[in-house]
Design a protein around this nucleic acid. Structure first.
Lengths: 168, 168
DNA sequence: GTTATACTTGACAATAAAGTCCAGATTAGT
DNA sequence: ACTAATCTGGACTTTATTGTCAAGTATAAC
């Protein structure tokens, strides 16, 4: 489980555009992020394709944010460049010999992955590109305010009570 | 951002061992999961390497869980087979021309990724292999009880108040 | 309209991940 | 011992992801 480089670069390039408060050329973004121009071009093309950046061609051209940075959530960025967060549809394809989901009726994995996806989505939805312009310390505060749950370790809510007790 | 096949297979194979309540051969696991034996062997070898499964060689051999399923969290499984959830160390390597993190002093991305990793970790830590044996509907209940935060969309906690307002 | 500056696009190369194959090692039962 | 069942480990193939390159198109400025 990892963030792809495309996803990370997308977030970073957008944050540079936000910081610049205007137009930046591919060359400038590449320089700011320490990436190659070719690679940066690819990232920006993708961001344009999913409607998060706009491009101006020709002399004096460059890229700008398609919307104010406060209106671009990180969820949009990551989900935009990478498709769905997870491929829940794994459950629907073939896995070797059998057709369809091997975990048919009793597939408890599906709701688990789905919920994980939602947890991640909720977290990312609450952050925008504008948030990334904060100083690292300020960001830490914002981000730790997010999803400050009461530990989540005591979910003896449903059916069986046979969890807990990691004793030996 | 996605779950690797190794991660998914690892979870599924462990859940089969838990369901079996004992020993299973690679062939049996492969059959149950609809995977090839070769691939299953690879997955199980990894699970053995990280101490989540034990193997018995020779005739009448097979695999068993190293611990009771209630004591194996999904976090352990995923982090075990995939290394760290994210490579936060991306910030420390080179990105093209520059050495070190291009987002030096003002790297607000680092706490963001770190917090995301923690959110995911917390979620996965609260679930065990034993939980995966529930029926799909029961699992849905358990899992939705996890991290039931009050929306997380109103985090005007820190510094700037310039978020909100996605009006146009 | 010519030129310099920039984005665009598709093809290619390098790398990493996923899956397969096979010869070897280990053990229970005979 | 011998055999059959079973895991083990390395090498190999296939596929997906990343990154690079070059030829092409658009636009502002002169």
């Amino acid at each position: 489980m990892k963030i792809s480089t495309l996803e990370e670069y997308a977030v970073r390039c957008l944050s540079q555009l936000a910081r610049a408060e205007g137009k930046l050329t591919i060359g400038a973004i590449a320089e700011l992020e320490g990436l190659s121009e070719e690679n940066t071009a690819k990232v920006m093309a993708r961001l344009r394709a999913i409607g998060l950046a706009r491009s101006l061609r020709g002399k004096d051209g460059g890229y700008l944010l398609a919307r104010p940075p406060e209106q671009i959530s990180l969820a949009e960025v990551l989900e935009g460049v990478a498709g769905e967060l997870f491929q829940l549809e794994r459950c629907h394809g073939d896995h070797g010999s059998r057709s369809g989901c091997v975990h048919h009726a009793e597939c408890s994995l599906r709701p688990m992955w789905a919920r994980l996806e939602q947890v991640v989505h909720d977290f990312l939805s609450a952050l925008t590109i504008a948030d990334l312009l904060r100083e690292e310390s300020a960001m830490r505060t914002v981000v730790s305010a997010l999803s400050h749950r009461p530990s989540a370790l005591d979910i003896t809510t449903a059916a069986e009570p046979d969890r807990a007790a990691p004793s030996s």
